Amino acid sequence: DETGKELVLVLYDYQEKSPREVTIKKGDILTLLNSTNKDWWKIEVNDRQGFVPAAYLKKLD
């Protein structure tokens, strides 16, 4: 059920640097789980959840 889920576009590649982070690729469109922290957003990638720098993402309307 995708209702109410926010999507984000990945602006730059990011390689995870800790187990709490996930790797993302430029151009991916992913589900945003939590954006309350202005610097690190929690997203879902391939059934994995983790954090990436918010500056690497853009919210889609």
Rank of each mutant, 00 (worst) to 15 (best):
T23F: 03
W41K: 00
V10M: 01
S35L: 04
V52A: 12
Y12E: 14
L7S: 08
Q49F: 07
T23D: 03
L33T: 05
T3S: 12
V8R: 01
D28L: 09
Y56L: 09
R48C: 05
E2W: 12
S18M: 08
K17D: 06
K42C: 12
K59T: 07
W40Q: 03
L7V: 08
Q49P: 05
L57F: 02
K26N: 06
G4L: 14
R20D: 12
D61N: 14
E2T: 14
E21A: 05
L9Q: 07
L60V: 11
L30E: 05
L30T: 04
D47F: 10
D13K: 03
K25W: 13
N37R: 08
D61P: 13
G27A: 03
L32A: 03
E6T: 15
G50W: 05
W40D: 01
D39C: 12
S18D: 11
T23G: 04
E16Y: 05
G4Q: 14
I43K: 00
V10T: 05
F51N: 03
D47I: 07
L9P: 00
E21M: 04
L11M: 08
V10S: 04
I29L: 07
T36K: 12
N34M: 08
G50P: 01
W41M: 02
D47E: 13
Y12N: 10
T3C: 14
R20Q: 12
S18V: 04
Q49D: 07
V22R: 03
I24G: 00
N34V: 08
L9G: 02
E6W: 11
W41P: 00
W40I: 03
D28A: 12
D39N: 11
T23Q: 04
T36M: 10
K58T: 10
V52H: 00
Y12G: 07
E2Y: 12
G27H: 05
P19D: 13
G50H: 05
D47C: 11
L9N: 02
Q15N: 12
A54W: 01
D39M: 14
W41H: 02
L7K: 14
L33M: 08
L30V: 15
T23A: 04
E16D: 05
V8M: 03
E44I: 09
N37S: 10
W40N: 02
G4A: 15
P53Y: 02
E16N: 06
V52G: 02
